[in-house]
């Protein structure tokens, strides 16, 4: 392992993380809800209409964030990897996996670990290990 000092951005990472934590804190204290994005998206497909307005408004806020950002400064660089087939496969796995696993980086990672949930810790370890393994196979074994 070698550290990529050129791309390491500790301060913006900490500050951005703090904003994410603040948003999750507001949502749980004001609305009594967990800011898990896959769960909020998944509830759009559920037959339960419970809290749909609040959930949709959270997602709307998330959706328009780059528009607000652009009023003040240029958007950060957004670079993708892979062709259409791998992106489609990735999306399908993320959609299916986060619903079976009942959470993603926000729901299990940020909110679950913040409420000291062993279940969320197990899920976070599982998707982190799978993420590391997936990149290892793609970049270092397949050389893509």
């Amino acid at each position: 392992m070698s550290i990529d000092w050129l791309h390491f951005t500790p301060w913006s990472a900490l500050a951005g993380g703090a904003l994410i934590g603040l948003a999750a804190g507001i949502f749980v204290l004001a609305n009594g809800r967990v800011a898990g994005i896959s769960g909020l998206l998944g509830s759009l497909f559920s037959r339960s209409r419970e809290g749909l307005g609040e959930k949709a408004l959270f997602l709307l806020g998330l959706l328009v964030a780059p528009l607000l950002w652009q009023l003040f400064t240029a958007l950060p660089v957004i670079e993708f990897q892979g062709g259409w087939l791998s992106i489609a496969l990735a999306g399908l796995l993320v959609g299916l996996g986060t619903r079976y696993g009942a959470g993603c980086t926000s729901g299990h990672g940020v909110c679950g670990l913040s409420r000291l949930s062993p279940r969320s810790l197990a899920a976070t370890l599982a998707f982190m290990v799978a993420g590391f393994a997936s990149v290892f196979v793609i970049r270092h074994l397949l050389g893509a």
Binding site: I37, S38, L41, L62, F80, Q81, G82, S86, I87, L89, A90, G91, L92, L93, V94, L96, G97, T98, R99, Y100, G101, A102, G103, C104, T105, S106, H108, A122, A123, T124, A126, F127, M128, V129, A130, G131, F132, A133, S134, V135, I138
Partner: peptide, 17 residues
């Protein structure tokens, strides 16, 4: 489910948020 999610996350570098 979390393992499937992690594999997909590693392919594209994108998670739901």
């Amino acid at each position: 489910g979390s393992l499937l999610f992690g594999i997909g996350w590693g392919i594209a570098g994108i998670c739901p948020g």
